[in-house]
Design a protein around this nucleic acid. Sequence first.
DNA 1: AAAGATTGAGATGTCAATCTTA
DNA 2: TAAGATTGACATCTCAATCTTT
Lengths: 153, 153
Amino acid sequence: VEPPPQIDPAVTLWGLVMEVHAELNRRLEGDLIGLAGLSNIWFEVLLRLFRSPGRRLRLTQLGEMVSFSSGGISKLVDRMERAGLLERTADANDRRATVVRITAEGDAAVRRALEVHVPSLHRHFTGALTHTQARQLEELLRTLRAALQSGRG
Amino acid sequence: VEPPPQIDPAVTLWGLVMEVHAELNRRLEGDLIGLAGLSNIWFEVLLRLFRSPGRRLRLTQLGEMVSFSSGGISKLVDRMERAGLLERTADANDRRATVVRITAEGDAAVRRALEVHVPSLHRHFTGALTHTQARQLEELLRTLRAALQSGRG
DNA sequence: AAAGATTGAGATGTCAATCTTA
DNA sequence: TAAGATTGACATCTCAATCTTT
């Protein structure tokens, strides 16, 4: 068999992205579950609602925000609704749509979760960076996001 | 209900990380599946083997590299073995262990996949960055990874 | 037609229990 | 005892089909 060819640096860079992302995700979710009883995705959904004007979002919007398919977000919302953290509401203007609203219980849950998540983020993530480095990272991510948006969708 | 409090910038930064990662992952995997017939994780497993000295790895090592549990990597290797891309081998020195080796077919598959993956990476990812920015990103990621390693694990 | 949402089928991950070997 | 690997039970995602409303 021939030896492996020289591999493009972009491959290594993407590998680094995946590795760091996976490990950060694992640790942050560990803290979140252990200390606040919420999985990463439940927390993210609640946070999106928490920060939305009116504290409500259409099901599909919510799904896009967290990168879920329509079926996936439908089932996720089922489970969170059963847990009492949010509720489905009819949309007065469009009877096809479902509006998801955070409940008082959900509101309390995000607030508790934020109290452990912010220190967790600093401990595992931003604490390793200087203020300047954090700004640099944000700038790079915004550049990438802008390119992805202009490129398609 | 009280208004949402000021949210720590680290929360937003992490949200940006997740968003960009998810979208990049989606596009890269789309190209990989569409143009080379390999999912992201299959490609990553093959690439790890491809670049390993001897083109083989212990099952557990491989699992750690791709952030999979022992059960998960066992089943993934099952499927890839059935597809003829790799094979299990006994470890002569430790009869508990299983060594995974890439097959000739697997070797050919990675090489084909690299030919579409590298342009795909440039199109969706590194093409949006200047050379300097790419270096910056790599530096930041290495800093984060080093902190994660020293912190635990 | 197309958009929003739901459902069932299928794919694939984790966790815990278990077996073998060190 | 512990490490390496496998398995079954379970959770939860995507995809495709379907229903309702626009």
